[in-house]
């Protein structure tokens, strides 16, 4: 009933063991389904992300983009199919979830900084308590990343004292302090005022240039054009189109993609 292109069928019939040993694969999602109660949010998702790839996921709201990347981090459970991150398959096993989360950083739409801790404490909390890094060393790393996101002078302030753009940059730095191999971005700029979007995107571009594996859910098509090496378009919980940015924007295949692009690019 569901027709997928050849390569997927092949993978689905059991060549996935190969991908586990394949060190170039960062994330492998195979035939994954997810439901919220009765609602079928993600339908037969197949996606392989290679190391160093920068993927932008676009699509109308409610298409399941955020849910997809939240599944990669096991913030949401999937009911069918496999998700393999860094060679570890995500199951209910807490040990594996911990392993994956330590390697995967996530940046949220609403920053989710810890409001009761200073910026520096926000950055050193996980390195100290998860990785067991001495405080002095964790603080040095934190300052290094704060400098990278260009706000070292805010280290001793509280999140509430910063602008949205600054908070989001802190959130990115907080993830980087755990030295993740993969970064997930869940609409990082959509809660920001227009003038702050740029400063956050700059940080993300900078990160991409360093070769970080990234999956970004975003509506920033300029960013997609400049940074992504693949753009994925989702609708109704499924991936309906993917291409390199050039082809994606100049010659969209699917009707829905065309409609979406016409709405978003005016």
């Amino acid at each position: 009933m569901s027709q997928v292109s050849e390569s997927t069928v092949e993978r689905a019939t059991g060549t996935s063991q190969m991908t586990v040993s394949d060190t170039d694969v960062a994330i492998d999602v195979i035939g994954m389904h997810k439901w919220y109660g009765d609602f079928h949010v993600l339908r037969d998702i197949n996606l392989r992300v290679m190391r160093g790839e920068r993927i932008v996921i676009a699509g109308p709201s409610g298409s399941g983009k955020s849910t997809l990347i939240r599944c990669v981090n096991r913030l949401e459970e999937h009911q069918e199919g496999q998700i393999i991150v860094n060679g570890t398959e995500l199951t209910a096993d807490l040990k594996r979830i911990d392993e994956v989360r330590r390697e995967v950083g996530m940046v949220f739409q609403h920053f989710n900084l810890f409001p009761h801790l200073t910026i520096l404490q926000n950055l050193t909390l996980a390195p100290i308590w998860v990785r067991g890094i001495p405080k002095a060393e964790a603080e040095a790393t934190a300052m290094h990343y704060l400098e990278r996101v260009k706000i070292p002078e805010q280290a001793n302030k509280f999140p509430g004292q910063l602008s949205g753009g600054q908070q989001q940059r802190v959130a990115i730095a907080r993830s980087l302090c755990m030295q993740p191999k993969i970064m997930l971005f869940d609409e990082p700029t959509s809660a920001l005022d227009p003038e702050m979007v740029k400063e956050v995107l700059e940080v993300m571009i900078n990160l991409a240039e360093d070769g970080m594996t990234m999956i970004c859910v975003t509506h920033e098509m300029g960013f997609a054009r400049q940074v992504a090496n693949r753009v994925i378009f989702m609708d109704q919980g499924q991936i309906i189109e993917q291409n390199d940015p050039e082809a994606f924007f100049s010659a969209p295949q699917h009707e829905r993609t065309k409609l979406f692009l016409s709405q978003i690019l005016h």
């Binding site: 009933m1 569901s2 027709q3 997928v4 292109s5 390569s7 997927t8 993978r11 389904h33 439901w35 109660g37 009765d38 609602f39 079928h40 339908r43 037969d44 197949n46 996606l47 392989r48 290679m50 790839e53 009911q79 069918e80 090496n229 693949r230 109704q236 919980g237 499924q238 991936i239 309906i240 189109e241 993917q242 390199d244």
Partner: peptide
């Protein structure tokens, strides 16, 4: 090179009921 991981569907998947044991 990236295209080798392309597996885009040709037709849409209809929503179906969740597998047994995850609902009801």
């Amino acid at each position: 090179m990236t295209m080798e991981h392309a597996y885009v569907r040709d037709s849409m998947v209809d929503a179906r009921q969740p597998p047994r044991g995850t609902d009801g």
